[in-house]
């Protein structure tokens, strides 16, 4: 290794750095002009439950508006609202209504929004195919399994109802960042976020499918469309919310008789974004073609009343 003249190094290296810095400056310029360049892009993020619905809407919309790009992220309902309230997205998908503190965050950032119900979902309780005892569970029995007090103590089906066999209870549920978790805990345990913690939490419903498929005493929950895709592997449990056993289905979810686990799904539209023609057009398209979109994505369509409400909400965006 020769001792090279440091002067040479002093010229060559800053030159290289300068080149790199120039590249950096260029990208900096680009950053400031980026919003105009990508103005024909509609950014959607949020609930992974609603994502397939928004993606289906995007596909159908793009078929008629080829120049508009729609991207759909899956950060979870909570994560989606964080981005939404930071102004990073135009539309936020949610599997539960926005929370007060999230709305406050949006308000603090000066983000105004409109809530639109776009579909219904029936949270479906699934068990193993070999499970021949639990055909119908009451809300109280589900609470017995999932409430915080059950942690470490309720470990067998025989503890749920007299007559159930002594098979170990193996629970699969949604991760804590998901709207599904919030909704389920509220509907079953009475308090949002209150749940035992010794279950298998996952944001990936396939994990629940595989887990429940693999253990005789397993039980899990996820959206109806996910169950419909996996009917050959799992059994859905009827739920008794006080008015008798009701099976999850499009009809019972729409009618609201599948209580308390049928739920509306939302999109939240940033009002400032709706000033852009393509975002407004997309929201209008979503509501006007809701039947086609929900049937493509296998979701429960809106009832007539819900449709009227959604149309009013969209009209308010103009």
């Amino acid at each position: 290794m020769p001792r090279f003249n440091l002067k040479v190094a002093a010229v060559v290296i800053p030159a290289a750095l300068l080149l790199a810095a120039c590249g950096g400056t260029n990208s900096g310029d680009g950053a400031s002009s980026a919003p105009t360049a990508s103005s024909s892009e509609i950014r959607i993020d949020g609930s992974s439950t609603v994502a397939p619905l928004a993606a289906a809407a995007g596909e159908l919309f793009k078929a008629e508006n080829a120049s508009v790009n729609v991207s759909v992220g899956t950060s979870g309902t909570g994560g989606g609202f964080k981005k939404f309230c930071a102004g990073e997205t135009d539309i936020s998908n949610a599997s539960r209504p926005i929370k007060d503190e999230e709305a406050a965050e949006c308000a603090a950032a000066g983000i105004e929004f409109t809530e639109i119900v776009v579909a219904n979902d029936a949270l479906t309780i699934v068990v193993n195919k070999e499970n021949d005892w639990a055909t119908c569970l009451t809300v109280d029995e589900l609470k017995k399994m999932w409430e915080p007090a059950a942690e470490g103590t309720v470990t067998s089906w025989s503890q749920i109802r007299a007559g159930f066999p002594d098979v170990p209870l193996d629970l699969y549920g949604a991760g804590t960042d998901s709207g599904t978790f919030d909704y389920f805990t509220k509907a079953i345990n009475g308090e949002e976020g209150a749940s035992r913690t010794d279950y298998n939490p996952t944001e990936d419903d396939n994990v629940t499918v595989q887990g429940v498929e693999g253990a005789k005493g397993a039980l899990g929950y996820f959206g109806l469309s996910y169950f419909e895709e996996n009917m050959d592997k799992l059994t859905a449990v009827e739920v008794d919310g006080g008015t008798g056993c009701v099976a999850p289905s499009i009809e019972t979810a729409q009618a609201g008789t599948y209580a308390p686990l049928s739920r509306p799904l939302f999109i939240y539209v940033n009002k400032a974004s709706a000033a852009r023609a393509e975002v407004l057009a997309f929201a209008e398209y979503f509501v006007a073609n809701d039947d086609a979109i929900t049937s493509k994505a296998l979701f429960v369509p809106l009832s007539a009343d819900q449709k009227t409400t959604a149309q009013t909400a969209v009209a308010g965006l103009k």
Binding site: S38, R43, A51, S71, G73, T74, D205, N206, S225
Partner: peptide, 30 residues
């Protein structure tokens, strides 16, 4: 991890890549 149906058309365009697409498809129901 986004659902994208357009070509990446600039340095500031959204994108997805093959490993991420694989990851997202493996968690799909179908």
């Amino acid at each position: 991890l986004v659902f994208i149906t357009y070509d990446p058309n600039g340095l500031f365009a959204g994108f997805t890549t093959m490993p991420i697409q694989i990851f997202s498809w493996t968690s799909a129901a179908q």
